[in-house]
Design a protein around this nucleic acid. Structure first.
Lengths: 351, 351
DNA sequence: TATTTAAATGTAAACGTTTACATTTGATTT
DNA sequence: AAATCAAATGTAAACGTTTACATTTAAATA
């Protein structure tokens, strides 16, 4: 593998000049630059990133820590981030693990070992707070969907409260009065905010409320199924269910079917996220759309802003991303009214 | 950020000894080792990966190049690879781009710049062949789902032919005689093999065949819709459609609905891949399941095998992964017979 | 032509490790 | 006590860049 010295020799210059060309410094004569570029091409030379990283303390790599990189929801955010940073010559390392301790280890080692220039942390469970302040000071970090505000870092969240409130109000508009809520994982930031939106809509509209209307899942389809089973076997039955995410809503729909209840006639069911499956299940799911891809772009932009700011500028920012409710069939609106959600970009599936 | 020198000073030894501890060389006295470990912990030291990479020429990072990292199909493979290599202390860089030229650039630069120790290439379009031999010689490479066999590299493919033949025969078993095929993207390896399975099943069973039964899509739902529209408007109509992947099959089902045709009564429709949506659409899709996650594990294993083999051992391997057909409703089997596909692992969706 | 000045290039140290080789240490044998 | 040897540790070069500083080159001015 050729190195900078080979290029220098071939072009008949010193390695410093070659380096200047690589980093396109303005102070190289056009003629020598051409010469060096030619040598680079002929030798098929690419600068060694380890050596560059060692010197410049910039690796052009970002670390992403996600609970799970393969679910549609996260994959889409990652895609957004990736597409954005790639334009700036950055690569992305994704560490996904359900195991919290493992996550922390990875995080710390990625950061401290100088492997990444910045970090995106998606850790919706609130307990982790203490972990964060763990000497991340020197590296730009963006927190995604967490309740805590750490100092000197950016936090990007979605408008869970408003989305949840609006979709609950939509159910109320349909005439529902006994509306259930299925919680997501315990301590999950998004779930908690969604609950707040739900409960406020219920109270502000003077609806019947009881703790019996609530059930606790963990964001999986299976937990949605189980929760809905319990809720729907109560007497009187709730007339509508709002699940804290789509996967649980889908599980709830299955439960209703199992109990021979018609959705939405016997029970309306709505979710949150607008995952791709939402539009395919029967009935099509009414939900709140999270612009995941766009979110990724915003994250990327924020990291670079921090990367390019001086030490002195304290970047402490909170960005709230607005959401949009998507009316389909499962709330009781007729299927006539279905519209494709403009925020959901279909991926080509190349198998 | 503390470096190896700081640790050495604190422990009262030379940096060489510290290095030996880091790389757990056997020739360090137990007592000094303890001392050094203590210093490392107290200073919260992590070796700089750039310096290590520069010296050792190993970065403990693998590069993955995929056409698209966010589709369920690919994301799942990536997840499999990641989970496997993480156990060996490796990280993964995923470069996904639809733009071929961009892909090539990324590939070459990742490899040459010493950023990765090995590479997984998923490039199902056959034209790219020439790109591959481009001096990848020194780095282990695994090719996924490509027709070409490059020398001294491993190639992992799925048993497209058998899967396609079996599912076609299943349609024939249902009594269908005019069976259409919707091709995937032009030049796509998987699509071509699936077509071969289809055509052999058709011929071996003495079925009617005409070029009019074929249509060409590009793996997207939209293209499946369009292709099915054309096919179903013909006279006589095909009684069954086999789409080269699930996304197109789903598009085809939509098309049938649009034409007020009942699936599977008026036209049976089957796909390939078993993406997660397949079980949710109505009717649930009969398809061929690709064990994507497991596939990722196999890929990871293969890379390490190469990484740990001496230059001299020529690794030239071809691994074929068996598939399984999943009978649901869209082929005409009653919904009674639906079984959850054991290969499809539901992800928890933490929003 | 000699002098000044700016532009272009070169020299060498630094980044943080690993490792071949040299040296020290301390136990074992004579 | 001296000699031998193995084990433990240290020294210093190397990995491939970048960049502050020094030097050369060539153009502009006196």
């Amino acid at each position: 593998m050729p190195n900078i010295k080979d290029v220098a020799e071939k072009a008949g210059v010193s390695i410093a000049t070659v380096s200047r060309v690589i980093n396109d410094s303005p102070k190289v004569k056009e003629k020598t630059k051409k010469l060096i570029l030619k040598a680079i091409k002929e030798l098929n030379f690419t600068p060694n990133v380890n050596a560059q990283g060692l010197q410049k303390k910039r690796t052009k790599t970002l670390g992403l820590i996600f609970p799970d990189a393969s679910s549609y929801y996260f994959a889409e955010i990652i895609r957004g981030i990736n597409s954005y940073v790639r334009k700036h010559g950055y690569q992305v390392i994704v560490a996904s693990s359900h195991d919290e301790e493992d996550e922390v280890r990875t995080l710390v080692s990625l950061l401290q070992s100088g492997r990444v220039d910045g970090m995106v942390l998606m850790m919706p469970s609130i307990q982790n707070v203490n972990v964060f302040n763990l000497s991340l000071n020197s590296v730009p970090v963006v927190y995604l969907c967490t309740g805590i505000q750490t100092q000197n870092s950016t936090r990007i969240i979605i408008d869970n409260y408003k989305g949840a409130k609006e979709i609950t109000e939509h159910l109320i508009w349909h005439g529902h009065s006994r509306i259930s809520f299925i919680h997501g994982a315990p301590n999950n930031y998004d779930s908690q905010k969604r609950y707040l939106g739900y409960i406020d809509a219920v109270h502000e509209n003077g609806l019947e409320y009881s703790i019996l209307l609530e059930s606790h899942g963990n964001f999986t389809e299976a937990s949605g199924f189980k929760s809905a089973m319990e809720l729907l076997n109560q007497e009187p039955r709730p007339t509508a269910i709002f699940a804290a995410n789509d996967a649980m809503a889908i599980g709830a729909i299955e439960a209703a079917k199992r109990l021979s209840l018609n959705v939405p006639k016997d029970v309306a069911i709505v979710g949150f996220d607008d995952i791709s499956t939402a539009q395919y299940i029967n009935p099509a799911l009414t939900t709140v759309s999270v612009p995941v891809y766009k979110m990724g772009q915003i994250v990327g932009g924020s990291i670079f802003k921090q990367l390019n700011s001086k030490e002195s500028d304290q970047v402490e920012e909170k960005i709230v991303i607005p959401l949009q409710i998507i009316i389909r069939e499962s709330c009781g609106c007729s299927s006539q009214g279905i519209e494709k959600n403009p925020n959901t970009q279909m991926d080509s599936e190349v198998s």
